[in-house]
Design a protein around this nucleic acid. Structure first.
Lengths: 257, 257
DNA sequence: CGACTGATTGATTGTGTTCAACCCATGTGG
DNA sequence: CCACATGGGTTGAACACAATCAATCAGTCG
């Protein structure tokens, strides 16, 4: 009984399981399998890239912390195209003749699990309905990416506000944030590169948001005093995250696009 | 014999088949099945949205023309997040209580095939290896979307140049463009909304690109006099389109992200 | 011929960039 | 313990790219 409770606690605090549950209900079996998959995590220090092997693909599962996917432009600018948050899968393709596709940067101290493709494959073979969950994960990622594109067209203040809303929502989805606040150890430079705005300007936008009591951000803790108000301000509609698994395909045929 | 040749011709000019062949080789069987799927196309007039039904999902397959996926911001701006080009799948989720997720706009006269989820499902059941091809399609789309995000950080001229490079490459991939030119009936306003730049400024950028002999664009025909030069100028590396199917998963377990 | 859409141009304004400091906390080695 | 380096964060001033407003022009279609 005690053991079962302990296991249950582990399962509940497992961000990958928490995340996949948004795709649809999981059976106890599936939860156990996912839990087993994510046993031995290891820690990665901040401000380093994950460098892929020459010809081996890697798949990481983020358990805690924040990483990012980015490219460096010819002028040296770093453009972050997505945050990798707890519960996210992160595939790192092998270096090919053209160089790297994307770089994965660790923004804050992370705990990750390295899973092999074989293990994933095996998982799906044993629990076919997880296939649908993985499709959901990929399509949700596509949606997030497109929403970032839309966000790029908003003026600075709503742009930053929208980003913070999304991060809060994603952390809430895996149980790492409460109703209106979360731990967030990102630097202003990270935010700048994620929004395609200079870090100087980000600083000024943050001040403006603070002045309007839309956010409080101190000592790596972000607090949103009035969530509906900032949602309204930023035109943030969490629907696109599809946390209810609504717009997902009812079967494993996705029509990805 | 004559019949076989005719069928073969049809298959070769079928953009969906052309596109999926980039994910990996298709068997003759698979090609026939895909060809059968895309039999009766119908035509949609430009400058109309595809409006989804109240509670029925639709999946369209674009055979010719250009459509786009967009959202309208609170200030009335239209932001295009992706072009739908021949060979692309385009899922239109049913309207939910929150309103529409994305709108699909027809930019130029299109020929589309409406496929049901059941038909797709059936297709995969009969030809399981097509599952991998569909994963490839979705992941390629994700890559494209992220590349647009990166592109948003480039200065205007390379931004537009990069977009044109991508469109040309995608049309070439389905046999609708030759080495350095293609039919392209997009308006300057469409380009503007796809890049998040005002149409007035797009006009000036186009003039600048023309002045530098990077592009020629007349009567709906885009010509790129020196492809390597514009690639270099725009920092365009077609790798991300993954037209060799290189970075794709070798099996249907994708790790979408 | 209007009416319409798309392209082009000029003038003005403004949001955001760039450059250049400076501050402050933290950590490190002599 | 201080000297110094380092990674944020903050501020000011000058500049630049692009948005906006407004008007004109060129085709095209009913």
């Amino acid at each position: 009984m005690l053991f079962a409770e302990a296991a249950c606690g582990q399962v509940l605090s497992n961000p990958f399981i928490r995340k996949l549950e948004h795709a649809g209900p999981l059976s106890e079996d599936e939860r156990q399998a996912l839990s087993a998959l994510t046993q031995d995590a290891r820690t990665l220090a901040a401000r380093h890239d994950i460098v892929p092997d020459q010809d081996a693909e890697r798949i990481y599962l983020l358990m805690s912390g924040v990483a990012c996917r980015y490219k460096t432009l010819v002028d040296g600018t770093r453009r972050i195209v997505s945050f990798v948050l707890p519960g996210d899968l992160c595939r790192i393709p092998p270096t090919n003749r053209h160089g790297l596709e994307w770089r994965i940067g660790i923004l804050t101290r992370c705990s990750v699990v390295e899973v092999s493709r074989a293990a994933l494959h095996d998982l799906i073979n044993r629990h076919p309905s997880l296939n649908r969950a993985l499709w959901w994960l990929a399509l949700a990622e596509l949606n997030r990416s497109r929403e970032w594109l839309v966000n790029d067209s908003r003026p600075g203040m709503q742009r930053l506000a929208h980003l913070l809303c999304e991060v809060l929502a994603c952390l809430q989805a895996v149980g790492l944030a409460d109703e209106n606040s979360c731990e967030l150890a990102l630097s202003q430079v990270d935010l700048a590169d994620a929004l395609g705005i200079s870090h100087v300007h980000i600083n000024r936008i943050l001040q403006a948001l603070r002045k309007q009591d839309l956010i409080v951000w101190q000592r790596h803790r972000l607090v949103i005093p009035d969530v509906p108000r900032i949602h309204d301000f930023a035109d943030f509609d969490p629907t696109y995250l599809d946390l209810d698994g609504l717009s997902t395909c009812p079967d494993p045929v996705p029509a990805g696009d």
